[in-house]
């Protein structure tokens, strides 16, 4: 316990890094995933902006990238990282990779939830003279918002999990802290406290997600 106290500043910094990684990844990946999900939904044959070529291309891209385990994805996209953010290690690199990875997972969640929206409602919006893009943004997203928030919450938990794995690559954050200051020094209290911290973050996120979803569903 004594040793943990001396590591307190590092622990605080680790929490800050985890929050940075997770929040940026969920927001950036969330927006990109939303866009991809909307494209998948809208271009699907028979839908609002049916476009076979675009649908097939995005569909294949998502199917190829999504099954890649995150730690492998992280190393596989290093060339891309070098070109875009100029580094392949550290917190920024991990955040970049995590954002991309989350985006592909979210695209499917968004697509699935949009598909559950009653086609009759879309027809009503078309009959009112709305444009396809307008229908996507002002009808489909609001109608699917409740389940979509739960989907985002699920992804948030997965991102916290993956951000800890990224600690193996020197990405910073609580995973890194638990490995470097905990398990590698056989300092188990550090490991347990870190685990407890992650559990608290996940619980808080889940609670917030449930609360927002309930408000959106008005139940």
């Amino acid at each position: 316990m004594h040793e943990f106290v001396t590591n307190l500043p590092v622990y605080r910094e680790a929490i800050r890094q985890t929050f940075f990684i997770v929040i940026i990844s969920v927001v950036a990946g969330g927006l990109l995933g939303l866009a991809l999900g909307l494209v998948l939904y809208a271009t699907r044959p028979g839908n609002l902006m049916a476009n076979r070529a675009v649908f097939l291309a995005v569909n294949v891209l998502v199917n190829v990238i999504r099954p890649i385990p995150f730690v492998i994805f992280l190393t596989a996209i290093q060339p891309v990282m070098l070109h875009t953010i100029g580094t392949t290690i550290g917190t920024n690199a991990v955040t970049f990779a995590l954002s991309l990875s989350a985006a592909f997972a979210i695209s499917r969640i968004v697509e699935q939830n949009l598909l559950t929206v009653d086609p009759g409602v879309i027809e009503a919006a078309r009959a009112a003279g709305a444009r396809p893009v307008g229908i996507l943004l002002t009808v489909l997203i609001p109608e699917a918002l409740g389940p979509m928030i739960l989907g985002y919450t699920f992804i948030f938990v997965a991102v916290v999990d993956m951000s800890a794995q990224a600690g193996l690559f020197g990405g910073g954050g609580l995973g890194d802290f638990a490995i470097t200051y905990g398990s590698q020094r056989y300092n188990w209290p550090v490991v347990y406290i870190t685990v407890a911290t992650i559990v608290v973050i996940v619980q808080a996120g889940q609670f917030l997600g449930n609360w927002l979803a309930r408000r959106a569903l008005r139940r």
């Binding site: 009759g120 009503a124 009959a127 609001p142 109608e143």
Partner: peptide, 14 residues
């Protein structure tokens, strides 16, 4: 041109 439907097709989110 207005249109009404058998299942009403109201927006649940509004």
């Amino acid at each position: 041109i207005g249109m009404i439907f058998q299942q009403f097709n109201l927006f649940r989110s509004r």
